[in-house]
Computed example of a mutant assay.
Amino acid sequence: MTLARPVVTDGVAHPPAAVSCQALSIGHGERVVLQAASFSIPAGSFVGLLGPNGAGKTTFLRALLGLTPVRSGELHVFGASPVCGDSNVGYMPQSRTPIRVSLTGRDMLASSLHGERWGLPLARAEGARRIDEALHAADAQDLAERRIDALSGGELQRLRLAQALLSAPRLLLLDEPLASFDPVRMREAALQIREVARRAGATVICSAHDIDPLLGVMDSVLYIARGRARLGSVDEVITSSALSDLYGAPVEVYRSPRGRVFVSADVA
Protein backbone atom coordinates (compact mmCIF):
# COMPACT_ATOMS: atom_id res chain seq x y z
CA MET A 1 0.00 0.00 0.00
CA THR A 2 1.28 3.46 -0.92
CA LEU A 3 0.71 5.75 2.04
CA ALA A 4 -1.04 9.03 1.39
CA ARG A 5 0.58 12.33 2.19
CA PRO A 6 -0.72 14.35 5.16
CA VAL A 7 -3.68 16.61 4.50
CA VAL A 8 -2.82 20.30 4.84
CA THR A 9 -5.52 22.70 6.04
CA ASP A 10 -4.88 26.28 7.17
CA GLY A 11 -1.18 25.65 6.79
CA VAL A 12 -1.20 22.74 9.29
CA ALA A 13 -0.41 19.16 8.22
CA HIS A 14 -2.79 16.50 9.51
CA PRO A 15 -2.30 12.76 9.06
CA PRO A 16 -4.86 11.07 6.80
CA ALA A 17 -7.76 9.35 8.52
CA ALA A 18 -7.21 5.71 9.41
CA VAL A 19 -10.42 4.81 7.56
CA SER A 20 -12.57 6.99 5.35
CA CYS A 21 -15.74 6.10 3.45
CA GLN A 22 -17.55 8.21 0.90
CA ALA A 23 -20.94 7.00 -0.39
CA LEU A 24 -19.66 3.46 0.26
CA SER A 25 -21.73 0.44 -0.71
CA ILE A 26 -20.57 -3.12 0.00
CA GLY A 27 -22.27 -6.50 0.30
CA HIS A 28 -22.05 -10.19 -0.43
CA GLY A 29 -24.16 -12.03 -2.96
CA GLU A 30 -27.37 -10.12 -3.46
CA ARG A 31 -27.33 -8.72 0.06
CA VAL A 32 -26.29 -5.12 0.65
CA VAL A 33 -24.46 -4.58 3.96
CA LEU A 34 -23.74 -0.86 3.63
CA GLN A 35 -25.52 1.51 1.28
CA ALA A 36 -24.05 4.96 0.50
CA ALA A 37 -22.29 5.21 3.89
CA SER A 38 -19.99 8.18 4.56
CA PHE A 39 -17.82 8.55 7.68
CA SER A 40 -14.22 8.95 8.76
CA ILE A 41 -12.29 7.25 11.59
CA PRO A 42 -9.39 9.31 13.01
CA ALA A 43 -5.98 7.67 13.29
CA GLY A 44 -5.19 6.48 16.80
CA SER A 45 -8.82 6.05 17.89
CA PHE A 46 -10.55 3.01 19.39
CA VAL A 47 -13.87 2.33 17.67
CA GLY A 48 -16.49 -0.14 18.86
CA LEU A 49 -18.21 -1.79 15.88
CA LEU A 50 -21.75 -2.70 16.92
CA GLY A 51 -24.96 -3.93 15.36
CA PRO A 52 -27.34 -6.88 15.36
CA ASN A 53 -26.26 -10.37 14.30
CA GLY A 54 -26.02 -10.54 10.53
CA ALA A 55 -25.83 -6.76 10.10
CA GLY A 56 -22.52 -7.01 8.23
CA LYS A 57 -19.86 -6.16 10.81
CA THR A 58 -17.54 -8.93 9.59
CA THR A 59 -18.20 -8.02 5.95
CA PHE A 60 -17.12 -4.44 6.68
CA LEU A 61 -13.91 -5.67 8.32
CA ARG A 62 -13.25 -7.90 5.29
CA ALA A 63 -13.68 -4.87 3.03
CA LEU A 64 -10.97 -3.07 5.02
CA LEU A 65 -8.75 -6.11 4.47
CA GLY A 66 -9.31 -5.95 0.72
CA LEU A 67 -11.23 -9.25 0.77
CA THR A 68 -14.72 -7.86 0.04
CA PRO A 69 -14.89 -5.62 -3.04
CA VAL A 70 -16.40 -2.16 -2.98
CA ARG A 71 -19.60 -2.03 -5.06
CA SER A 72 -19.70 1.74 -5.32
CA GLY A 73 -18.29 4.79 -3.61
CA GLU A 74 -14.88 5.02 -1.99
CA LEU A 75 -13.12 3.21 0.86
CA HIS A 76 -9.64 4.26 1.98
CA VAL A 77 -7.28 2.94 4.65
CA PHE A 78 -4.70 5.61 5.53
CA GLY A 79 -5.54 7.37 2.29
CA ALA A 80 -5.21 4.37 -0.04
CA SER A 81 -7.55 1.66 -1.31
CA PRO A 82 -7.49 -1.54 0.79
CA VAL A 83 -5.10 -4.21 -0.46
CA CYS A 84 -5.19 -7.86 0.56
CA GLY A 85 -2.09 -8.76 2.55
CA ASP A 86 -1.27 -5.19 3.64
CA SER A 87 1.11 -5.41 6.61
CA ASN A 88 -0.26 -2.09 7.91
CA VAL A 89 -3.49 -3.89 8.83
CA GLY A 90 -3.65 -6.58 11.50
CA TYR A 91 -6.68 -8.87 11.77
CA MET A 92 -7.98 -11.07 14.55
CA PRO A 93 -10.82 -13.16 13.08
CA GLN A 94 -13.83 -14.38 14.98
CA SER A 95 -13.28 -17.99 15.97
CA ARG A 96 -15.02 -20.30 18.39
CA THR A 97 -13.69 -23.57 16.98
CA PRO A 98 -11.41 -25.46 19.40
CA ILE A 99 -7.84 -25.94 18.16
CA ARG A 100 -6.76 -29.57 18.22
CA VAL A 101 -3.14 -29.41 17.10
CA SER A 102 -0.05 -29.95 19.23
CA LEU A 103 1.66 -26.63 18.58
CA THR A 104 3.06 -24.27 21.17
CA GLY A 105 2.07 -20.64 21.29
CA ARG A 106 5.40 -19.71 19.72
CA ASP A 107 4.83 -22.25 16.93
CA MET A 108 1.42 -20.70 16.24
CA LEU A 109 2.93 -17.26 15.77
CA ALA A 110 5.88 -18.57 13.76
CA SER A 111 3.48 -20.21 11.30
CA SER A 112 1.99 -16.75 10.64
CA LEU A 113 5.21 -14.81 10.20
CA HIS A 114 5.18 -14.83 6.42
CA GLY A 115 1.45 -15.00 5.76
CA GLU A 116 1.20 -11.37 4.63
CA ARG A 117 3.45 -11.62 1.58
CA TRP A 118 5.39 -13.79 -0.87
CA GLY A 119 9.16 -13.78 -0.76
CA LEU A 120 12.18 -15.06 1.10
CA PRO A 121 11.65 -15.70 4.82
CA LEU A 122 13.12 -13.37 7.39
CA ALA A 123 16.33 -14.34 9.10
CA ARG A 124 15.63 -16.64 12.02
CA ALA A 125 16.80 -14.09 14.62
CA GLU A 126 14.60 -11.36 13.12
CA GLY A 127 11.57 -13.65 13.13
CA ALA A 128 12.16 -14.61 16.77
CA ARG A 129 12.44 -10.94 17.71
CA ARG A 130 9.11 -10.13 16.06
CA ILE A 131 7.43 -13.05 17.84
CA ASP A 132 8.83 -12.01 21.22
CA GLU A 133 7.67 -8.41 20.68
CA ALA A 134 4.15 -9.53 19.71
CA LEU A 135 3.89 -11.87 22.70
CA HIS A 136 5.03 -9.10 25.02
CA ALA A 137 2.61 -6.58 23.51
CA ALA A 138 -0.31 -8.96 24.06
CA ASP A 139 0.88 -9.93 27.56
CA ALA A 140 1.16 -13.52 26.34
CA GLN A 141 4.79 -14.35 27.15
CA ASP A 142 3.63 -17.06 29.55
CA LEU A 143 1.87 -18.86 26.69
CA ALA A 144 4.86 -19.08 24.35
CA GLU A 145 5.89 -22.63 25.27
CA ARG A 146 2.47 -24.01 26.19
CA ARG A 147 0.50 -26.23 23.83
CA ILE A 148 -2.37 -24.32 22.27
CA ASP A 149 -4.73 -27.31 22.39
CA ALA A 150 -4.55 -27.09 26.20
CA LEU A 151 -5.27 -23.37 26.50
CA SER A 152 -8.48 -21.78 27.73
CA GLY A 153 -10.55 -19.63 25.39
CA GLY A 154 -9.22 -16.46 26.97
CA GLU A 155 -5.60 -17.60 26.74
CA LEU A 156 -6.08 -18.49 23.09
CA GLN A 157 -7.53 -15.06 22.43
CA ARG A 158 -4.38 -13.48 23.85
CA LEU A 159 -2.31 -15.52 21.40
CA ARG A 160 -4.57 -14.51 18.52
CA LEU A 161 -4.08 -10.89 19.51
CA ALA A 162 -0.32 -11.41 19.47
CA GLN A 163 -0.68 -13.03 16.04
CA ALA A 164 -2.50 -9.94 14.76
CA LEU A 165 0.32 -7.72 16.08
CA LEU A 166 3.15 -9.55 14.31
CA SER A 167 3.47 -7.03 11.49
CA ALA A 168 3.29 -4.01 13.86
CA PRO A 169 0.08 -2.85 12.14
CA ARG A 170 -1.19 0.72 12.12
CA LEU A 171 -4.79 -0.52 11.98
CA LEU A 172 -5.98 -3.40 14.14
CA LEU A 173 -9.25 -5.11 13.18
CA LEU A 174 -10.73 -7.33 15.90
CA ASP A 175 -13.79 -9.47 15.16
CA GLU A 176 -15.54 -10.18 18.50
CA PRO A 177 -12.31 -10.65 20.48
CA LEU A 178 -14.21 -10.72 23.80
CA ALA A 179 -16.48 -13.61 22.90
CA SER A 180 -14.46 -16.25 24.77
CA PHE A 181 -14.37 -14.40 28.10
CA ASP A 182 -16.72 -14.35 31.06
CA PRO A 183 -18.34 -10.95 31.85
CA VAL A 184 -15.63 -9.90 34.33
CA ARG A 185 -12.76 -10.86 32.02
CA MET A 186 -14.46 -9.11 29.07
CA ARG A 187 -13.84 -5.75 30.70
CA GLU A 188 -10.26 -6.63 31.63
CA ALA A 189 -9.57 -7.87 28.09
CA ALA A 190 -11.03 -4.70 26.54
CA LEU A 191 -8.79 -2.51 28.74
CA GLN A 192 -5.78 -4.66 27.84
CA ILE A 193 -6.50 -4.33 24.10
CA ARG A 194 -6.75 -0.55 24.47
CA GLU A 195 -3.41 -0.43 26.29
CA VAL A 196 -1.76 -2.67 23.68
CA ALA A 197 -3.06 -0.42 20.90
CA ARG A 198 -1.88 2.76 22.64
CA ARG A 199 1.63 1.38 23.09
CA ALA A 200 1.70 0.36 19.43
CA GLY A 201 0.16 3.63 18.24
CA ALA A 202 -2.50 1.64 16.38
CA THR A 203 -6.06 2.48 15.45
CA VAL A 204 -8.54 -0.19 16.61
CA ILE A 205 -11.88 -1.25 15.17
CA CYS A 206 -13.33 -3.83 17.55
CA SER A 207 -16.62 -5.56 16.79
CA ALA A 208 -18.63 -6.68 19.79
CA HIS A 209 -21.97 -8.23 20.60
CA ASP A 210 -22.26 -6.38 23.92
CA ILE A 211 -21.48 -2.68 24.33
CA ASP A 212 -20.96 -2.73 28.10
CA PRO A 213 -17.35 -4.06 28.20
CA LEU A 214 -16.33 -1.29 25.78
CA LEU A 215 -17.91 1.61 27.67
CA GLY A 216 -15.16 3.98 28.76
CA VAL A 217 -12.69 2.07 26.56
CA MET A 218 -13.74 3.11 23.07
CA ASP A 219 -13.58 6.64 21.74
CA SER A 220 -16.56 6.22 19.43
CA VAL A 221 -19.17 3.77 18.17
CA LEU A 222 -19.75 2.66 14.60
CA TYR A 223 -23.24 1.14 14.53
CA ILE A 224 -24.39 -0.82 11.46
CA ALA A 225 -28.01 -1.81 10.92
CA ARG A 226 -30.15 -2.47 7.85
CA GLY A 227 -27.52 -1.28 5.39
CA ARG A 228 -26.92 2.01 7.19
CA ALA A 229 -24.13 3.18 9.47
CA ARG A 230 -23.66 5.89 12.06
CA LEU A 231 -20.39 6.92 13.71
CA GLY A 232 -20.17 9.05 16.83
CA SER A 233 -19.79 9.03 20.59
CA VAL A 234 -21.82 6.63 22.73
CA ASP A 235 -24.10 9.49 23.78
CA GLU A 236 -24.68 10.42 20.14
CA VAL A 237 -25.25 6.94 18.69
CA ILE A 238 -26.63 4.71 21.46
CA THR A 239 -29.85 6.65 21.92
CA SER A 240 -33.47 5.78 21.26
CA SER A 241 -33.78 8.39 18.50
CA ALA A 242 -30.52 7.52 16.70
CA LEU A 243 -31.10 3.76 16.72
CA SER A 244 -34.77 4.15 15.77
CA ASP A 245 -33.59 6.13 12.76
CA LEU A 246 -31.06 3.44 11.81
CA TYR A 247 -33.56 0.59 12.16
CA GLY A 248 -36.49 2.48 10.71
CA ALA A 249 -38.58 1.25 13.66
CA PRO A 250 -39.02 2.12 17.35
CA VAL A 251 -35.99 1.28 19.51
CA GLU A 252 -35.69 2.03 23.22
CA VAL A 253 -32.35 2.51 24.98
CA TYR A 254 -32.18 2.19 28.78
CA ARG A 255 -29.27 2.95 31.09
CA SER A 256 -29.08 1.37 34.52
CA PRO A 257 -27.87 3.30 37.59
CA ARG A 258 -24.58 1.39 37.27
CA GLY A 259 -24.11 2.52 33.69
CA ARG A 260 -25.13 -0.63 31.81
CA VAL A 261 -26.89 -0.09 28.49
CA PHE A 262 -29.91 -2.07 27.34
CA VAL A 263 -31.38 -1.85 23.84
CA SER A 264 -34.92 -3.04 23.23
CA ALA A 265 -36.15 -3.26 19.65
CA ASP A 266 -39.19 -4.75 18.00
CA VAL A 267 -37.96 -4.93 14.43
CA ALA A 268 -38.40 -7.60 11.79
Rank of each mutant, 00 (worst) to 15 (best):
Q163A: 10
P121V: 07
A4Y: 00
C84S: 14
C84G: 11
V33A: 13
R226D: 11
E126S: 00
E236M: 06
G248Q: 04
R71P: 04
Q163M: 09
P213S: 13
A225G: 12
A110Q: 04
G66N: 07
I224Q: 14
L222S: 00
V184C: 13
S112T: 00
A128Q: 08
V267Y: 04
P121Y: 01
F262D: 13
G232S: 05
D210E: 13
D139F: 00
D235P: 03
I41C: 04
S241P: 04
P42S: 07
A125F: 11
G232R: 06
L75N: 04
G48W: 05
D175I: 04
P15Q: 07
G154M: 14
G54M: 14
A37C: 05
R198P: 13
E195R: 03
A23F: 09
L178P: 10
S95N: 07
R96N: 04
L64R: 02
A18I: 01
V47K: 03
R198W: 15
P250M: 09
E74P: 09
A265I: 10
A128E: 07
S180G: 08
F60E: 07
S167C: 14
S167Y: 10
D245T: 02
R255A: 10
K57D: 05
P42I: 09
D149V: 02
S25K: 09
R199N: 06
P82Y: 09
H14Y: 04
P213I: 07
E126W: 06
A164V: 00
A249M: 05
Q141V: 05
H14M: 03
T58L: 13
N53K: 14
G51K: 13
F60T: 09
G259I: 03
M218E: 11
S256A: 10
W118P: 04
L159H: 10
L61Q: 12
R129F: 05
P15F: 04
P16G: 03
L61C: 14
L143A: 06
M1D: 04
G119S: 05
L65R: 01
G51T: 13
D149Q: 02
G44K: 11
A268Q: 12
G85L: 12
P42V: 11
V83R: 12
S167I: 12
Q141H: 06
S72I: 02
A268G: 15
S244C: 10
L243C: 13
L243R: 15
A202T: 14
R124H: 15
H76F: 07
R130P: 07
A138S: 07
Q157E: 00
R198F: 12
K57Y: 09
R226I: 11
A80V: 03
I41A: 03
D142C: 00
L172I: 15
A43R: 01
S38L: 01
G201A: 06
L103E: 06
G127N: 06
D10W: 09
R129T: 02
V221N: 03
A80C: 00
T58V: 14
L103R: 03
V70T: 12
L214E: 12
H14V: 05
S20L: 00
A36F: 07
E133A: 15
I148S: 02
G51H: 12
Q22T: 15
G90T: 10
C206Q: 01
S111R: 14
P213H: 06
I41S: 03
A13V: 12
P177Q: 08
L178I: 13
R71D: 08
A189M: 15
A43D: 09
A128T: 02
L113C: 08
L246T: 11
R62C: 11
G119N: 01
S38T: 00
I205A: 08
